[in-house]
């Protein structure tokens, strides 16, 4: 790693960690402090539960949104870095490094919170938390060991966060190529179209319309996520190889797209 890549990575990571700290503080304010103050003002303090509030912060979900949004912010850092003689290629490499490191930090925080705060305060077993998570179907593939299961879960979560960050990077780099007006248009139109498409697919599959057969698509998704094509999956014991490969390919595609868009960034007047 060149000195410039290292310096830029350090700069971006420091800035993003500061923002993560602010985001966590904001969540604590919204989920814990404000309800407490509200309870105090309205005289309902007896109904307020500090442990209830602090134990349901959903840090994993927060981090998912955080890393997508923070990595999509492209132009401001590009401006500052090109002003300081940093090339687009170095900026991209440093961003990828930052995504990998920040995702690791986010994963560790989310797991510490889940098993150190959420589980004990809600009187949940570590096993049930592990199986209820998105990585739940795969955690016991390597053996019926909780620690090993948590490590598998952490690995899958880490890769998932990296993919989320890289997707944010690709989207942000693409948006940064357009004027503010077109950016706003895309930010509004694309999610609406996406929701419309999703709604259409759900409705078409619900009504068993003969014109639309999603069996092929379902089979592809089952294959990509390592579910058996026939029969019921044995949750917790599925092979994580396919989802790992799928996520890594997704990461490579998103990282590649981010690279292509990043190379075209330029200063706007």
């Amino acid at each position: 790693m060149s000195t410039k890549v290292r310096t830029t990575t350090r700069y971006l990571l420091t800035e993003q960690l500061k923002l993560l700290g602010w985001a966590l503080l904001a969540v604590v304010m919204i989920m814990v402090i404000i309800p407490l103050l509200f309870s105090l003002v309205t005289g309902n303090i007896s109904n307020y539960s500090f442990t209830g509030s602090i134990s349901n912060l959903a840090l994993g979900v927060l981090f998912f949104f955080f890393i997508f949004i923070i990595e999509s912010l492209t132009y401001d850092n590009f401006k500052l870095l090109i002003q300081n003689g940093i090339s687009r290629r170095t900026y991209w490499q440093a961003r990828v490094n930052t995504v990998v490191l920040l995702s690791l930090i986010g994963t560790i925080l989310a797991f510490i919170y889940a098993y150190g705060v959420h589980a004990p305060l809600n009187h949940l077993s570590s096993n049930s938390i592990l199986l209820d998570a998105l990585h739940g179907p795969y955690v016991y593939f390597f053996g019926n060991n909780l620690v090993l299961g948590i490590l598998v879960g952490m690995l899958l979560t880490w890769i998932f966060f990296i993919g989320t960050g890289l997707t944010g990077m690709a989207c942000g780099s693409l948006l940064a190529l357009f004027s503010k007006w077109i950016q706003r248009l895309l930010v509004i139109v694309v999610p609406v179209l996406g929701a419309f498409l999703l709604g259409f697919m759900i409705s078409a599959s619900d009504h068993q319309q003969t014109n639309y057969n999603f069996d092929g698509l379902v089979t592809v998704f089952k294959f990509l996520f390592g579910f058996p094509l026939h029969g019921n999956p044995k949750m917790g014991y599925l092979n994580p190889t396919m989802p790992v490969i799928t996520m890594l390919i997704g990461c490579a595609i998103m990282g590649g797209l981010a690279y292509l868009f990043n190379r075209k960034l330029k200063i706007k007047n």
Binding site: S2, K4, D76, K79, L80, I82, Q83, G85, I86, S87, R88, R89, T90, R263, I267, N269
Partner: peptide
């Protein structure tokens, strides 16, 4: 273009503000 070693030897103070 996109070369750290040459860009690092140059500083452009532009009319457009690129600082946060």
């Amino acid at each position: 273009q996109d070369n750290d070693s040459t860009l690092g030897k140059l500083y452009l103070m532009s009319e457009v503000n690129l600082y946060s």
